[in-house]
Design a protein around this nucleic acid. Structure first.
Length: 852
RNA sequence: GGGGGUGUGGCGGAACGGUAGACGCACCGCACUCAAAAUGCGGCGGGCGCAAGUCCAUGUGGGUUCGAUUCCCACCGCCCCUACCA
């Protein structure tokens, strides 16, 4: 066979190349660390922890959206590695949770069979795409080697007083007999069976994330995260400044709370006391009082009634005898609604009068107390002072129930008593507010609070929208919460040395009507010995939220195989916090906030020495299909396999990144995949045919410009423009059928390797290197001076419009440029002999002549 | 209702306040071929013009500027998140 024939048949064969290099990577451990190497690199190397959000291993396998997300992050990791960092890039599986459980129920398969199968499939697919994952350090949250430590985390939080058990309302589907997450309630109905969802009160475990609200908010300023993500967290935490104000209850109570007659005495007292006296002395008089949170203490003179959440604990106590029936009926009605529907803003407000009266501490007047479902127990104190004149919701309610509306703020040009056709929420001065009349709203907020505070009727208060994290799930597929209940000792944590509390294999894992976990049906499992008194104890039968699994997994990766600790202190110190974290913005609040909370709590307990887990976070865009998120139910899932079969993983990776800005995402379609495929083919041919000869000066310039562009773009995750720059360079190398210089092509191969790692490895080897590119190549350097061309295309404008373009040498002076411009006939035509009033000179770019 | 994002050729998309449409796809023409595919070369926003050129053009309307896709204001469309937050 002649040389020429060999030459021609030696074309790019992606399948062959990819098979070869994936095998090489495995056998030579190119992408994996042994535990000792990881330790060593952490100390002596330049550790770089490149993390991407781990997937939930669904039964459908990876879709193109997953590949898209992972590819962008993998490219960044490979780039950092070639820059000389010791990159740790792990992957794992977030496999617990209601999703898996529901799917298992539907298919009639046990999750303990289903999940390992899914993970196997995922692993195969991930390997096929050529990610640089360290398969020696992987996690599966459903393995007891992992969730043992999830339980350990729970115990640490418990010890720190950050876990508590309390009653809370949950969504309940009476047909599926299960608790539903808010996301599973669609339009007030169960997502799965369409039954109307109701509310139930269940005793649940909570993490007190609200203790950290202020720090979680303030720290946002110290971390390098996508702005949109920070904004989302800020809104979610929702700090609002205001005051807590006390309204003493002065009506006859229908349920005196003690037999000693104190209530009667107190009521009697009242006839000898002025409103002022009651207000300033309610505490010592032990008056029942209702606290409200308000951001508008300045409007308190306009508070004409009060509203409690229907489930407010004081309702029973204050409701008068005559109103009791109506109040209870209303409470029942509200309880029947699910949480989600109740929070929807677009419905009519309803409520009932409790008959109780409280004193407005500012006016000293009695105002009625209502209950209404537009007041939520979870926010603030679960009670509001209603100021219908200056709050839209209160206004609507007052109109409907004919409650008085008083104006206490007058905007510019408004009369003190100008009637209100709607709530006025703008700026202005106080009116009808005693000695505060005339004061600006902002000043009045402070002054009114201070004035009330003097009488112990108010205090400044910062309130957060964030609520405590309910971690109980009355479900099967999760880590059992490591708590025991002993009749003598009460709540007893499972001793750490007894972990894990294993999730037993049970056939009947379907939830039932009891509202308690399926595990509660297994006495042999839940009955155990009390570690404190040796008596009988019952295990907690709820499992924990999946979000707890993922709130600490990044701490586990380096120590993935350590069976003595959740995370090894020295490894953790050397490798964390995570240098770069990439994931979807749909996790902007929950996952990312929980991970920050757990990290902060562990920091305070001195388990770790940092309080923010992710130094840098970037949200990738969402890959959609036909304008909708990919999902099986919509039937628009695109699987990667067929593209890998046809074009290879390298082309798929490059194509996905070439479609558009990584951080914006986009609509998947395959019409352009030929572009990147052609590019890789041309790259192959060009390298194959490259010659050993000196670089031509223009080529050298373009090479440096390309290195610069690709380097900067990769750092900014602008993968699409980095690819474009490489294409452009390759076009120059091949222009007019020319043969490329080896010295031009070798750096290009390195630049392309994050995108097309298999191809790059193969070309690297063919260029005579015996070791893997990732062990023997360094990211090319560029010389900024060589990255710019000597000749620029200079533009001459007249009045801002382009009238001539002329090649000029770089660094041309304004005077020379002007001379050249004034010699151009077209420019002269537009100057039309008129006086040049002004010239704008932008070096190496343009000259603008302003005339007229 | 609130918050965030976004709008550029037939399509995906480029553009430190400075040449709008880089780089691709699709399409058209040409070369190679008996032919096709593959590959290579050339063209490719719209109008007028033989051409040089010129006018229009980055959702709509205003503003700032010598100059605006880029900054500001208002409006329209689409997407995402959130939802009575007192």
């Amino acid at each position: 066979m002649s040389d020429a024939t060999t030459h021609v048949t030696d074309t790019y064969n992606p399948q062959e190349v990819e098979r070869k290099w994936q095998a090489r990577w495995d056998s030579e451990g190119i992408n994996t660390y042994t535990d000792s190497d990881l330790r060593k690199a952490g100390v002596q190397g330049r550790p770089f922890y490149n993390l991407m959000m781990f997937p939930y291993p669904s039964a459908e396998g990876l879709h193109i959206g997953n590949i898209y997300a992972f590819t962008g992050a993998d490219i960044y990791g490979r780039f950092k590695r070639l820059q000389g960092y010791d990159v740790f890039e792990p992957i794992g599986f977030d496999a617990f949770g209601i999703h898996s459980e529901n799917f298992a129920l539907k298919m009639g398969v046990h999750p303990m069979e289903l999940i390992p199968r899914n993970i196997e499939r995922f692993t195969k697919q991930l390997r096929r795409v050529g990610f640089m994952y360290d398969w020696n350090h992987t996690v599966d949250t459903t393995q007891k080697e992992y969730y043992r430590w999830t339980q350990w985390i729970f115990l640490q939080l418990f010890k720190a007083g950050l876990a508590e058990k309390k009653e809370a309302p949950v969504n309940w589907c009476p047909s599926c007999n299960t608790v539903l997450a808010n996301e599973q309630v669609v339009g007030g109905e169960c997502e799965r069976c369409g039954t109307v969802v109701e509310m139930r009160n269940l005793s649940q475990w909570f993490f007190k994330i609200t203790d950290f609200a202020g720090r979680l908010l303030d720290n946002l300023q110290t971390i390098d995260w996508s702005e949109t993500t920070k904004k989302a967290q800020e809104n979610w935490i929702g700090r609002s400044e205001g005051a807590e104000v006390v309204f003493p209850v002065v009506s006859e109570s229908s349920t005196p709370e003690s037999d000693d007659g104190s209530e009667v005495v107190r009521q009697a007292f009242r006839y000898f006391l002025t409103a002022d006296q009651i207000i300033s002395r309610w505490q010592e008089l032990e008056y029942p009082a209702i606290k409200v949170f308000t951001t508008r203490p300045d409007t308190i003179f306009g508070a004409t009634y009060m509203v409690l959440a229907p489930e407010h604990p004081l309702v029973a106590q204050i409701t008068t005898k005559e109103r009791r029936k109506a109040v209870q009926a209303y409470q029942r009605k509200v309880a029947a609604k699910d949480l989600v529907t109740r929070k929807k803003g677009d419905k009519k407000k309803t409520g009932v009068d409790t008959g109780a009266r409280v004193l407005n501490p500012a006016t000293g007047k009695e105002i009625p107390v209502w209950i209404a479902d537009y007041v939520l127990m979870e926010y603030g104190t679960g009670a509001i002072m209603a100021v219908p004149g200056h709050d839209e919701r209160d206004f609507e309610f007052a109109q409907h129930y004919k409650l008085p509306v008083v104006r206490v703020v007058a905007g510019a040009g408004d009369d003190a008593d100008a009637p209100l056709a709607e709530a006025y929420t703008g700026p202005g001065r106080l009116v009808n507010s005693g000695h505060f009349d005339g004061m600006e709203v902002d000043e009045a907020k402070r002054e009114v609070t201070a004035w009330l505070a003097e009488r112990n009727a108010a205090e400044p208060r910062t309130n957060y929208r964030l609520h405590d994290w309910t971690i109980s799930r009355q479900r099967y597929w999760g880590p059992p919460i490591p708590i025991l209940y002993c009749d003598d000792c009460g709540i007893v944590p499972v001793p750490e040395e007894q972990l894990p509390v294993e999730l037993p294999f049970i056939e009947d894992f379907k939830p039932d009507a009891s509202g308690i976990s399926p595990l509660a049906r297994h006495r042999e499992w839940y009955l155990t010995g009390c570690p404190q008194c040796g008596g009988v104890a019952r295990r907690e039968t709820d499992v924990s939220d999946t979000f707890l699994d993922s709130a600490w997994y990044f701490l586990r990766y380096p120590s993935a195989r350590n069976d003595r600790r959740a995370f090894e202190p020295s490894l953790t110190r050397n490798w964390l916090p995570v240098d770069s974290y990439i994931g979807g913005n749909e996790h902007a609040v929950l996952h990312l906030l929980y991970a920050r909370f757990v990290t902060m709590a562990l920091h305070d307990m001195e388990w770790i020495d940092f309080e923010e887990p992710f130094t840098k976070f970037r949200a990738h865009g969402l890959m959609i299909k036909d304008g909708a998120k990919m999902s099986k139910s919509k039937g628009n899932v695109v699987v990667p396999d067929v593209y890998i079969d046809d074009y290879g993983a390298d082309t798929l990776r490059t194509y996905l990144m070439f479609m558009g800005p990584y951080q914006e995402g986009g609509d998947f379609r395959d019409t352009g995949i030929a572009g990147p495929y052609n590019f890789l083919n041309r790259l192959w041919d060009t390298v194959r045919d490259a010659e050993d000869r000196p670089l031509e000066p223009e080529i050298e310039q373009k090479l440096h410009a390309t290195i610069k562009k690709v380097t900067e773009d990769l750092e900014a995750l602008s993968h699409n423009t980095a690819i474009a720059a490489m294409m452009e360079f390759l076009n120059v190398l091949r222009a007019g059928g020319r043969t490329a210089e080896r010295a031009a092509v070798e750096p290009l191969v390195i630049l392309s390797s994050p995108f097309a790692p298999h191809l790059a490895e193969e070309l690297w080897e063919r260029m005579g290197h015996t070791e893997s590119l990732y062990r023997s190549a360094a990211w090319p350097e560029f010389d900024p001076a060589k990255a710019v061309a000597d000749t620029v295309e200079f533009v001459v404008q007249v009045n801002g419009k382009v009238r001539a373009r002329m090649p000029m040498s770089r660094g041309i002076s304004e005077a020379d440029a002007r001379d050249a411009a004034l010699a151009d006939p077209n420019v002269l035509r537009f100057l039309d002999g008129k006086q040049v009033r002004k010239t704008i000179f932008v070096p190496d770019r343009l000259l603008n002549l302003v005339v007229g």
